[in-house]
Design a protein around this nucleic acid. Structure first.
Lengths: 123, 123, 123, 123
DNA sequence: GTGGTCTAGACCACT
DNA sequence: GTGGTCTAGACCACA
């Protein structure tokens, strides 16, 4: 059973939250290359989500090369940890860039953004 | 003519990009309380968008208390700068919160996030 | 100079507020049959409103038979006080009916409406 | 299927009629907290209106905290009945205030208004 | 001229 | 299936 918590209210799509968490678990080596992931049905039941969301999450992770779906056998962590590190950083950078752009459109200075972020982490 | 550019590729709804930009212009005092904004038709023409999208952007800003729509007269920056500060901070905080959650799901530590952010700003 | 106050914020169109007030002034005999009303230009200047609003108000009152516009001479209170009493009551009744309908759609009982109204008048 | 009828002649926007009716249904407990509302398409089909009008009605109710729209899942009555009571009262009060102002401009006394209202309800 | 509402319909994102 | 965004355009109400 994956240590995976979802927050349906935050406006982040369920399937993305799953993707992020699985990437995180692999990065922290809670999930290791070659290890088997829960079946789509298990995942959906465990998280009480719509199976389609599980399907979408796995499918996107597969496209990103993070996991591989073996029809009839199961789902496994991909053997390419290097790729993962790259993709994980890419995801973060892309999000950061989007945030910065938006914050600057809103008229916030770099300092203000940093300050807000550090304060938020104290909570 | 408002200094306002849209980026249709970013996946951010047009009306939100407009909202952010206007909030930013007010925050930077390029638009001052009581000042008149472009009419819905002007805005739509200028940005080459459908009038409905302009309506949506203005209407949401009105809900947020940032501007006021006067039927038959025009659209004006609200006289209450406090409300703007509030709504602007809310937007930033919400985005930051979403980013933090995602980053932590991805297994990034607070330090890593801050470092990535500060490096990105040097560019 | 007419004792006439407008409230542009209440959501009631300016021209209607003018219409109501003039009907009221006639009903209370502050304006008498045959008496001359301010010119459109005077009215607009005095109330600091757009001339179109004044035009619209007078024009609607003329259609209702309350006043008469004599081209080149001026605007005068109509000679038919009976008609006024009727139209005045009609306007109120129509508004009351609309209010009742809406309030009942909202699920308010007659008692609740009456109570809210009496409380509001104490203010 | 919601017991919901529209009156296109009344001059009240369709989306507001929908809002009022839904607030009323919740207030009368015909709709309970957490209960699912018809989908936007269902509502539009049922009332023979354009989907956009349905979207507007639901979206405004969401802003008022009365319902919540869950992307991909459906629309649900908000769990916070307090907010409904608040928003419902606000709507009534605003309408009453407008009516009172108008009636007083027309020269009606409080007594006259109350009398007209009570008589109308006897019908 | 201004804002406000509405239709008819498309396409996208999420579950 | 669900909600969310957008286009193209019409018509109305208000100043």
């Amino acid at each position: 059973m994956l240590p995976l918590q979802l927050n349906p209210r935050l406006g982040i799509p369920i399937y993305r939250q799953i993707m992020d968490a699985i990437r995180g678990l692999i990065a922290s080596e809670a999930l290791k290359p070659g290890e088997r992931l829960p079946s789509l049905r298990e995942l959906a039941t465990q998280l009480r989500i719509n199976p389609s969301s599980a399907v979408k999450a796995y499918s996107e992770l597969q496209h990103a090369g993070v996991i591989s779906l073996d029809h009839g056998r199961g789902t496994f962590v991909s053997e390419k940890p290097g790729l993962l590190a790259q993709s994980r950083k890419k995801v973060l950078d892309q999000d950061l860039r989007a945030l910065l752009l938006k914050a600057k459109n809103l008229g916030f200075s770099s300092k203000e953004i940093l300050r807000a972020l550090t304060e938020m982490e104290k909570e």
